[in-house]
């Protein structure tokens, strides 16, 4: 659970898995994040909603340590990410999953090798049979066991997204960060991916931050929504609360 302090920031409590306090990030003169605060509780699916270029992807890349914030505090699984060593960062990352917007499947590797890659890196001591079992389990979870020896270029957009999801889940992460998981997919496939995210989230008891502007996906997966406008946390609430909002910017988003 999170609690509000006097200055309006949220502080973590025992159930908090991610806590961001006064996060700022700018690129040159362009300030992307302004004193952004957020908490993600265990088991929660939190959607960050916002227009393109509003700083959503920068935010989750800051969380996973791909981008360094200018100031502010990021605590992931009770570990302060500022000034963290490479070894500790890798340990935290092994407990996080990241589904990239472009899927980021390695073009030169087969589906099997793509899935094995994080396993072999984070669990170096793992036996060959165990690796094979986990790869097969991950592919079965996303309904694509027959693609194991295929190359990513042989797969459709929806299949690639599923494989990317399988790769994200193969380490059984506690938190998953989804960067626009349904972008570029047809409505039916997007719906299937949203269902899969909910189903696998329940199966592995994960907490998630989902970046999206696909309102169907948002409606399905969101337990809490944070509206990000110009790098600031503009409004938060449930899907219904935001849908009923009288605020013009929020209204525009939901009406569209």
């Amino acid at each position: 659970m999170s609690e509000k302090t006097e200055n309006g920031t949220e502080t973590e409590t025992s159930g908090t898995v991610i806590c961001l306090e006064n996060l700022c990030k700018s690129f040159g003169d362009h300030q992307v994040l302004h004193n952004f605060n957020l908490t993600l509780n265990k088991g929660e699916n939190l959607v960050i909603l916002g227009r393109s270029g509003s700083g959503k992807s920068v935010l989750i890349k800051c969380i996973i340590g791909l981008i360094k914030p200018d100031s502010g505090i990021i605590r992931v699984l009770q570990q302060d990410m500022s000034g963290i060593g490479l070894h500790e960062l890798d340990q935290i990352r092994s407990r996080l999953g990241f589904l990239f917007q472009s899927n980021a499947l390695y073009d030169s590797m087969t589906v099997r090798e793509n899935l094995e890659f994080p396993l072999r890196r984070h669990r170096r001591e793992m036996l060959e049979e165990e690796v094979d079992r986990l790869v097969e389990e991950a592919l079965t979870n996303v309904g694509l066991p027959h693609t194991i020896d295929m190359m990513p270029s042989e797969l459709s957009g929806g299949m690639r997204k599923r494989i990317a999801l399988a790769r994200t889940l193969i380490l059984k992460p506690e938190i998953i960060l989804y960067d626009e998981p349904t972008t570029g997919l047809d409505p039916i496939t997007a719906g299937e991916i949203s269902d899969l995210m909910i189903e696998l989230g329940k199966k592995y008891h994960t907490s998630s931050i989902i970046i999206s502007h696909d309102m169907r996906c948002v409606k399905k997966v969101a337990e809490k929504i944070v509206m990000l406008i110009d790098g600031r946390c503009y409004q938060k609430g449930t899907y219904e609360q935001l849908r009923m909002s009288e605020n013009e910017a929020v209204k525009k988003f939901f009406e569209s």
Binding site: R93, D107, R121, H122
Partner: peptide, 13 residues
């Protein structure tokens, strides 16, 4: 296509 970022997230330099 963010494959380099994916590699970093997978615990690889």
């Amino acid at each position: 296509t963010e494959q380099i970022d994916a590699m970093e997230v997978s615990g690889t330099n």
